[in-house]
Design a binder for these strands. Sequence first.
DNA 1: GTTCATGGATGAATCGATTCAATACAAATT
DNA 2: AATTTGTATTGAATCGATTCATCCATGAAC
Lengths: 369, 369
Amino acid sequence: MACQQANTRMATVNAVTLMKRIDSIHQWRFSVPSGPGAKLTDVAALARVSVGTVSNVLNRPDQVSFDKRSRVLAAIDELGFVRNESARSLRSGSTRSLGMLVLDVRNPFFTDVAMGAENVAEDHKHSLILANSAEDAGREQAYLDLFEQQRVQGVLITPYGQVLQRLERMRDRGIPSVLVDRLASTDQFCSVSVDDVAGGATALEHLVSVGSVRPAFVGGPFTLQQVEDRYRGAADAAARAGVPLQLFETPDLKFERGRQVGDLMGNLQPDKRPDAVFAANDQLALGLLQSFAANGLRVPEDIAIVGFDDIDFASQSSIPLTSISQPRQLIGERAAQLLFDEIDDEPGHVHSQVVFTPELVARQSTRRR
Amino acid sequence: MACQQANTRMATVNAVTLMKRIDSIHQWRFSVPSGPGAKLTDVAALARVSVGTVSNVLNRPDQVSFDKRSRVLAAIDELGFVRNESARSLRSGSTRSLGMLVLDVRNPFFTDVAMGAENVAEDHKHSLILANSAEDAGREQAYLDLFEQQRVQGVLITPYGQVLQRLERMRDRGIPSVLVDRLASTDQFCSVSVDDVAGGATALEHLVSVGSVRPAFVGGPFTLQQVEDRYRGAADAAARAGVPLQLFETPDLKFERGRQVGDLMGNLQPDKRPDAVFAANDQLALGLLQSFAANGLRVPEDIAIVGFDDIDFASQSSIPLTSISQPRQLIGERAAQLLFDEIDDEPGHVHSQVVFTPELVARQSTRRR
DNA sequence: GTTCATGGATGAATCGATTCAATACAAATT
DNA sequence: AATTTGTATTGAATCGATTCATCCATGAAC
């Protein structure tokens, strides 16, 4: 009884589906195709094959005979079928996407890293969802929520707030992450970072090698690990070289701060004034440069400058800026590779910390006097 | 017979579901929660309510009594339930996302526009998927495919290749789009753009007003509508002012080209050399600036420069650069608003073309001599 | 005491793909 | 001729949420 009813209903459903198909073909032929697009069953009906075969054409085309495959492809084309990704990933249990959460999309450093990651993701037929925490713990959490809801396969993140615990929980539930531009403090994660201490040392050694005897460090806040490390590297190198290192601490790393510090230095007695500056990033360095230009200090003759990051504009400044260059794209690529390693779960996956050593790019701002 | 079998199978399924539920609670209580997360039915069971109620708590919390609502929320918390967005949007037929396709994520112009759009999207509880066509027609198509598969609610796009027809088709199937930084040539789309002709005119009038009598335009290729328009605006303004306008055409708008053109100008006789340059964008302008600095030409004394876009680095150059500023963030916001208008289909939606007039930001590079 | 209205709650049906056990069929082997 | 092997194909069950027709309980109105 109930059974009969079920059968009846089934027949009804089929009839409706068929109608819809004919209808949609009709529309396509004679007018503008519109409304909700065709679905897989429509394609199957038009190509006179089963839904399983259509799915195979989409996912394992080489397992389908030439005849049916081409019929299916023709039907797909005819109907303008576009597979519904929500349905795909609901059933298959796997989205084809990674989430990436950076501190500032407007910072070219991160967009470069993202491009590197995107390239690798593309090779794996995944897409990269790029999000911007904008150095805001709330947004950071919100985007992690989003990533979890979207069931991304993995996350690339430059953490801002306290998220490590959460990331561990996510990993335990099947969403691994890789820390970018941060050395993992635990062995719970892979990370890709840059040896800022070495970078700081390189910068300062370079200044000494071009003749500086009164170098200074400009940067802050020291709560940023990067700043701390770069300073420490520079301080150690200064000690080794037997020169003092003056410190100008700033509340942030923005251009404006650089200009302010520059103005400050410009007002010092020439013999008190540093003869070279190592700025914790290029923004600061450009600020210094602008200030010096405005105050009639010559770079590098009166004062040399080295920055950090080697952003495009370092080389594009009127006086091209010496800087410490990080392999940005490579960082992104490597991070994505590590992430895929963990996703594909080569069972013996061990978390590894990749540390790149940044390189000096010498330009006019530190030319030997 | 078959009917009986069906019933039996159903019972089996229920038993399995129950087992799984108990199992997952068990795991939570006594060990690390892991494996596939809890689902909505688990929450319903733990809170002793129906699945419909849980769904209501998630989507229409005010329609649920306080008692059950808090039980559900407690269960969600206890199980660490995260709603599966694929399932949500499959059933509801609507994703909560927009796609945005730009020509170059590394260009601060586009990241600013994107941030504006993102803010509006956030207000509408949507997320913005940012993709980079990188001025590659293939990638552009591929990302549009992706957007269609993901069933985004709408698309913000700065078209590169021939995509208008495709966008029309998408719109007819329920995915509208808004053109960004492009004036829609048809009335089929909304668009948000900037009046480049006016911008070009402004730039040239400014140069004349600070005393230029031999201005030049640098930029290309003229197949880019932007370049064409900026040049035309400048040329018209020059004609009106009764000064000639020299043209230096470039194959692209990159920094390096600016430097090359700058070197070229540096080699001209001082009385043949332009006394002011309008560069089609800031990258070119910075290239010119660097070249002039290297060749000992003083800016603005020997030659004034005005750029276009007012990127951050325009003001951060050693000699701060006068530029034509576009309301980038506003462009993104407005575009997203128009898109939501069309998505929410206020039935009388008419496509509108928003055109912002760019503004001159005068800085040192055009200071009156 | 009965009817009606209403806000809350329920749960089977549903969205559109993929999966996989079952089957059909051809070719190879015994 | 019978059996095995292997490949191509099928279609019902499934993923995890939302939807919505239905039901329930409570109180107001008659």
